[in-house]
Computed example of a mutant assay.
Amino acid sequence: MSRNKFPPKPKYDPDEGPVYLYGLHTVRAALDNPGRTKKELLATPNGLNRLKESGDIGRVSVRETTPKDLDRLLGGEAVHQGLALEVDPVSRFGLDDIHALKLVVVLDQVTDPHNVGAILRTACAFGADAVITTARHSPRETGVMAKSASGALDLVPMIEVRNLADALEKLKDRGMTVLGFDSEASAPLKPRTDDTPLAVVLGAEGKGLRQRTRELCDEMVRLDMPGPIKSLNVSNAAAIALFAATAGRS
């Protein structure tokens, strides 16, 4: 490990520039992931001390910085806790790379990084084996996504597919029931009472699931809500769906 002082870095572009993960839990998870390429840790003295209290930081190069410089780099809204880790994006998996799939979350063109990060966190909490996204119309890995995921980006495999319809067919061939969510579906969501492998399919807010995706679902369900608001953020819907999917499992 080297600890150096350099001039502050210019503000980065999350859509084009390097990937910075920030915040204690997110940086800790990335450091603990042996499959993650870590380039440089930017840390304030206090941030570095807290990070070391949570575990070994390994051989990553450390650049001492200030809260002001991190604000300038990441933007004033970033809750960085004195830590930012420059990394390569986490490796995306193919559908054939993960053999035992009992519970997966499938995202049909969900593009908001806050939502995808929150869904990753929920998927991790409920023991999902993977989150499946499309190669197009899905967000690039950013600090915003990683912060929303609170470390789950380095814990839950992300499977990237080019053709979602083909991927759903493969999941069905592997014995999974494909459960789609739509506010207009005739059947309400109910807790599952068996151990049948399940793929929970969620669409983007507003447009929902595409027609071909709906056609390939074995079941379509809706979330019944007695209150005056009849729709939820997709990440909240994912949490309810995963609770129902796992509530009856042994």
Rank of each mutant, 00 (worst) to 15 (best):
S2L: 07
K5L: 13
K9C: 02
P10K: 12
D13N: 15
P14Y: 06
L21R: 06
L24F: 03
T26F: 03
V27I: 05
G35D: 07
T44Y: 09
N46A: 15
N46M: 13
K52D: 12
G55K: 14
I57E: 05
R59N: 15
T65G: 08
T65W: 06
T66N: 10
L74E: 04
V79F: 12
V79N: 07
H80C: 04
Q81T: 01
A84F: 00
V87W: 13
V90P: 07
S91G: 02
R92K: 10
L95C: 04
D96V: 04
H99L: 08
A100I: 06
A100E: 08
L101S: 02
V104W: 12
V105G: 06
D108L: 03
D108M: 02
T111H: 09
D112P: 09
I119E: 05
A125I: 00
R136A: 00
T142I: 13
G143I: 05
V144R: 09
D154Q: 08
P157G: 02
M158G: 13
M158V: 15
E160N: 01
D166F: 02
R174S: 06
L179T: 15
A187Q: 15
P188T: 14
L189F: 14
D194T: 15
D194L: 13
P197W: 04
P197V: 01
L198M: 15
V201I: 01
G203Y: 03
G206D: 12
Q211T: 10
T213I: 05
L216M: 03
S235G: 01
N236Y: 04
A238V: 09
I240M: 13
T246E: 08
